[in-house]
């Protein structure tokens, strides 16, 4: 028991949510180390049904209709060891008019040979609100392959936001594949912010299908690469209903021998739908940098500040 408690604390600390979880008994959380649920605190209206698998856990996560969870709900997945596999199956149901903000902290601080995969099926009921913030913490040498996949359905009037961010350590290899279907009057926001270095490999495939009247979607990717890191971003946004509106935005800053590729795919199948896109790949903007240097910042300091802003 003591060991488990110590492991929970270690994982939460490494995930940077120790204080948030322990200082407030009104905060729900789940802690999974490898394939074992080692910590769980629920709340009325939230149903968390974990099941152990060989290499990870399956979780059915439900927020009951009409339940509004004001405080963040934390899911902590991770491994403190340096090697192994962890697979997460998520089956998420946010029922009608429910509201929840989920923070998934995926923590592998000592990674040298880890495979972390996730398959998620997400259903967001009518007029429900679901935000999913995925925050990763990796080892300084990378040594990790992360493969998250999700299929999301956003019902009428619902809101879905997902943000991916690497808080600490090196990417290693990441291959994100998210696909989202949006029904009438729904809103989709997908944001990814990643900084790659060394030989990191970043692949992002995000697709949004604005299939309902007045549905709206924004896909945003911001990446900063240096050394010999590489990134490929395929953002697809389709609009096939009247007054569907969308925007795809990809910005990548490339330094040293890093390589970046962005392929925005925009498809409009209705005369009253509208999608815009922008992509900017390349070195740091010269005017931005020289302005900061003319205030006394060194080139390195200026570049760092610009990248911090980009990844915000």
């Amino acid at each position: 028991m003591e060991n488990k408690s110590a492991l929970i604390d270690e994982l939460l600390e490494a995930s940077r949510i120790h204080k948030a979880v322990h200082s407030d008994p009104g905060v729900a959380y789940l802690v999974v180390h490898h394939n074992e649920v080692i910590g769980l605190r629920g709340l009325p209206g939230i149903l968390v049904e974990p099941r152990q698998t060989k290499d990870g856990v399956g979780i059915r996560f439900t927020v009951k209709a009409g339940v509004q969870i004001e405080k963040p709900v934390y899911l902590c997945f991770g491994m403190m060891s340096d090697r192994g596999k962890q697979h997460i199956d998520m089956d998420v149901h946010i029922e009608e008019k429910a509201r929840v903000n989920l923070y998934a902290h995926c923590t592998f601080p000592n990674s040298s040979n880890i495979l972390h995969t996730m398959d998620a099926a997400v259903h967001i009921g009518p007029h429900a609100h679901y935000s999913y913030y995925e925050r990763h913490i990796h080892g300084e040498n990378g040594g990790i392959e992360v493969v998250p996949k999700a299929k999301v359905t956003v019902e009428e009037g619902a809101y879905f936001k997902t943000e991916f961010e690497l808080l600490k350590g090196r990417v290693g290899s990441i291959d994100i594949d998210y696909d989202c279907l949006c029904k009438a009057n729904s809103i989709l926001e997908m944001i990814a912010r990643i900084s790659g270095r060394g030989a990191d490999i970043v692949k992002i495939r995000e697709s949004g299908h604005l299939a309902g009247d007045h549905s709206r979607g924004v896909l945003t990717t911001k990446i900063a690469l240096r050394d010999s890191a590489s990134a490929e971003v395929y953002n697809t946004l389709t609009a096939s209903a009247p007054y569907a509106r969308g925007h795809v935005d990809c910005k990548e800053i490339v330094q040293d021998g890093a390589r970046a590729k962005a392929v925005p795919v925009i498809e409009v199948n209705h005369p009253k739908a509208h999608i815009t896109h922008e992509a900017a790949l390349g070195s740091v903007d010269s005017k931005q940098l020289q302005t900061l240097m003319s205030r006394g910042l060194s080139e390195e300091q200026g570049v760092e500040l610009i990248i911090q802003g980009l990844l915000r």
Partner: peptide, 23 residues
């Protein structure tokens, strides 16, 4: 270089100031 001149006490305001994503 620019930053060295700045640290020696010279600075400049652009006619059309730069815009920064997220800063």
């Amino acid at each position: 270089a620019v930053d060295e001149r700045a640290r020696h006490g010279i600075t400049m305001a652009w006619q059309d100031p730069a815009r920064y994503e997220g800063l």
